[in-house]
Design a protein around this nucleic acid. Sequence first.
DNA 1: AAGTTAAATAACTAAAGGGTTAAATGCAAG
DNA 2: CTTGCATTTAACCCTTTAGTTATTTAACTT
Lengths: 113, 113
Amino acid sequence: MQQLDHTFAALADPTRRAILARLALGEATVGELAEPFDVSLPAISKHLKVLETADLIVREKRAQQRVCRLKPETLKTASDWIEQSRRLWKERFDRLDAYLRELQSKENNDGNG
Amino acid sequence: MQQLDHTFAALADPTRRAILARLALGEATVGELAEPFDVSLPAISKHLKVLETADLIVREKRAQQRVCRLKPETLKTASDWIEQSRRLWKERFDRLDAYLRELQSKENNDGNG
DNA sequence: AAGTTAAATAACTAAAGGGTTAAATGCAAG
DNA sequence: CTTGCATTTAACCCTTTAGTTATTTAACTT
């Protein structure tokens, strides 16, 4: 899924994750988002474009400002992908575990002691 | 967290996600992992190094092969980061919702009808 | 209309990422 | 001890990315 490429790539940058963490607390303008960072405003603008392309945020005009908001659905898609892998792994692990226990109990009944 | 940089960057590539999905079903050698893909073996080897650096897999020597295994704990760290953002957003949204409902009911009691 | 503020775009640079082929390593087996 | 197999490393190419400064766009303010 190409959507996931964009989502995870966007999440791979610490500045962008910090922006998302800030937006999780509520909407903010570009200027407000840029304030804590020691980079130029165009740099932040680029990060926001990456986040927007990844569908992680939306930007809305309000007077001469742009207000940014989180899009949690896309975060969910990413999280779901990860959880799916973890689930498969867990299932496989549980099966292996059950199999090993079965072997063990058979050995105990085969007069191995 | 720099760990998350590596984790999400590793997850941003479709080939690497496919490798992880394969490994979620059980361990595999480099050759087995490479087989479904239309790229050279060194390319796969690089992808595996990225996954290993990100702590998403471990590689273990077995005769002249390298067996790869998923490390689900790291997947969990990534998933947790995402879920934390979603949780904050949801809480904030619920608060906002409650506030709007309260406003609404006050209006109704102020002889607005 | 002119000025001011908020943000985006342009043009550029340096570093990183993903791919390639060719050569090197590590181990097993004849 | 040499041949073969599985994998990694080296050296390279090309594209993308993250940052910069300078310029432009858009909308409010006077």
